[in-house]
């Protein structure tokens, strides 16, 4: 598979504060990666660094052969990176449908296809962003990133705070996205086993550095290592 994302010796953080140190990873077209680690180790910082929302102190970021670091945040999204932020960031003055149409770009992810996989959003298309349940917000956050028609989808804690039944539904959707293979994906998730079950490869961060890399399946089958790395049995 052709390389899509290359993160090379990246040191980044907020202002002068360094959070990530010498992070190197790569991702091929259509590939999937779980980004694991305890709280505060830099998982979200890595995603927002890809979105250009941190200060890049050192290293390089390449996306589809282009220098990602030279692009502003909106240009990175237009270049093909879909972002599902941890905070979901709903827009209170926009309806569900406006959330989608305001950012939609040409591609296979159309409004009709979104409503096909998230029928609940179609039912509530006229509701505003501040009138949605946590599960609906998460569905909308994912849907909104999909209509950008990205080549790489960044999912930051997509299951956080959701009821088990909603988690099941979202797992099904994300599994379907991975299976389609047309889009690469990076998932940050506290529920390590969920993330590992969805992805092909895994990386574990600790204090801003990568401390483990392996196929997701191998880590899933090694509970001792998984427990040691992310304190999950």
């Amino acid at each position: 598979m052709r390389e899509l994302l290359a993160v090379d010796n990246v040191t980044a953080g907020y202002g002068a504060a360094v959070v990530l140190e010498d992070v190197t990873l790569s991702l091929a077209e259509g590939d999937s990666l779980a980004l694991l680690g305890r709280n505060g180790v830099g998982k979200t910082t890595l995603l927002v660094t890809l979105m250009g929302l941190t200060r890049l102190h050192r290293g390089s970021l390449q996306f589809a052969g282009a220098n990602l670091a030279a692009l502003s945040t909106y240009a990175r999204a237009r270049a093909g990176i879909g972002w599902v932020p941890q905070e979901r960031y709903m827009w209170p003055s926009l309806t569900i449908e406006e959330h989608l149409t305001s950012v939609a770009r040409p591609g296979r992810w159309t409004l009709a296809k979104i409503y096909e996989i998230f029928p609940r959003l179609e039912e509530r298309r006229g509701n505003f962003g501040n009138q949605l349940s946590g599960g609906e917000q998460q569905m909308l956050a994912i849907a909104r990133a999909l209509v950008v028609n990205p080549r790489l989808l960044l999912l930051d804690e997509p299951m956080e705070g959701l009821a088990p039944i909603i988690v099941q539904d979202l797992m099904k959707v994300i599994r379907g996205l991975v299976a389609e293979g047309g889009m690469a994906m990076v998932i940050v998730e506290q529920h390590a086993k969920l993330a590992l079950s969805l992805t092909r490869n895994a990386i574990v961060l600790d204090r801003g550095r990568i401390v483990h890399r392996s196929p997701s399946e191998a880590l899933l089958e090694d509970p001792q290592t998984l427990h040691r790395l992310v304190a999950v049995a």
């Binding site: 945040t73 932020p85 950012v103």
Partner: peptide
């Protein structure tokens, strides 16, 4: 509403 999210989604 949220300029960071707007930019992050390509606006």
């Amino acid at each position: 509403d949220n300029p960071v999210a707007a930019a992050g989604l390509g606006i």
